[in-house]
């Protein structure tokens, strides 16, 4: 019984990280109606950038995060304005194909620069400390911090979408791009901002991943798939749904892992397929926010 509670707790905490990965994906689909196939690779790129920055400037991972996240946001804005905006239109293939190309480039760029070795960020005792919850259960400080970050990011985005002028512009541009222009909204700029936010959030996710575990340059695609599964499980277009989706995925993986070390990731995929078959609109279908 205790072991199972522990399993579920670890799964819950993993869900926070998955939600961070999923948020950017949900955001770019919500605003631009496009999926960035290189989403996971950008997370890994951010992780390796943080590794490089932390090593070069002898910074701790969180200081490195403060440098890398704005840089990734700028990269996202630039990528959207210079490349991806040119591909948006009625045909859904061009943005997918272009970001697929980006994914190939990033993966091999990382292999070229950092070799195939895995890397991680050392956060000192923070990486190993844990809080006792009583009853023999304990939760790591780092997973708690990641979950807290996920909730904070989602709350901030929820506020942004619901209350701010930029958030209204995001929703308007998503509803009807042409009419949004008639309101004085520069769609291309708005899309750039949305991609900047998506990239910043996924950079946070990638850096947390590198603090928690070893990352390899070729891990991006797997991260994209988890993020995607979290989005679908949670329900398209629901910000808080991505957190729920991440948690379901994390728990499914933790449960699978308890049965057999080879079954963890598979159990996550099967949970995703089950949701797809039984509830194709996700657990929390809502298209209003994001």
């Amino acid at each position: 019984m205790h072991a199972w509670l522990d399993t579920l707790l670890q799964g819950l905490m993993t869900g926070g990280l998955y939600a961070l990965f999923a948020t950017g994906l949900a955001l770019s689909f919500g605003v631009m109606r496009m999926i960035n196939i290189a989403h996971g690779d950008f997370a890994i790129l951010a992780a390796f950038l943080a590794v490089a920055v932390a090593a070069a400037l002898e910074l701790n991972p969180f200081a490195a995060m403060l440098l890398v996240v704005p840089a990734m946001a700028a990269l996202g804005y630039g990528l959207q304005r210079l490349v991806l905006n040119r591909t948006l239109g009625k045909d859904i293939l061009p943005p997918l194909l272009v970001t697929f190309g980006c994914a190939i480039v990033i993966q091999n760029l990382l292999l070229e620069v950092f070799s195939a070795d895995t890397r991680s960020l050392d956060a000192g005792s923070l990486g190993t400390d844990s809080l006792a919850l009583g009853g023999g259960l304990a939760v790591g400080v780092l997973p708690l911090l990641i979950m807290g970050s996920a909730v904070a990011v989602l709350a901030a985005l929820q506020w942004l979408f619901a209350r701010s002028a930029v958030g209204r512009a995001f929703r308007a541009a998503s509803d009807d791009a042409e009419t949004a222009q008639l309101m004085g909204i520069d769609n291309k700029h708005v899309y750039g901002l949305a991609m900047a936010i998506a990239m910043a959030v996924v950079a946070v996710a990638g850096i947390y991943l590198a603090i928690r575990a070893n990352v390899s340059p070729t891990e991006g695609p797997a991260r994209l798939i988890y993020a995607f599964e979290a989005v679908i499980i949670g329900g398209l277009g629901s910000l808080w749904g991505t957190l729920a989706g991440g948690i379901v995925l994390g728990m499914a993986q933790a449960i699978g892992l308890r049965f057999d070390p080879g079954w963890g990731i598979l159990a996550g995929h099967l949970a995703f397929l089950a949701v797809l078959v039984l509830r194709p609109n996700g657990l929390f279908p809502r298209t209003r926010d994001a």
Binding site: I35, I37, L96, L224, I225, F228, H269, L270, F272, L273
Partner: peptide
């Protein structure tokens, strides 16, 4: 559309 793309990928992983 776009979701189909990533969905097929997830199936291949399965």
């Amino acid at each position: 559309g776009a979701y189909f793309a990533v969905g097929t990928w997830a199936v291949a992983e399965v």
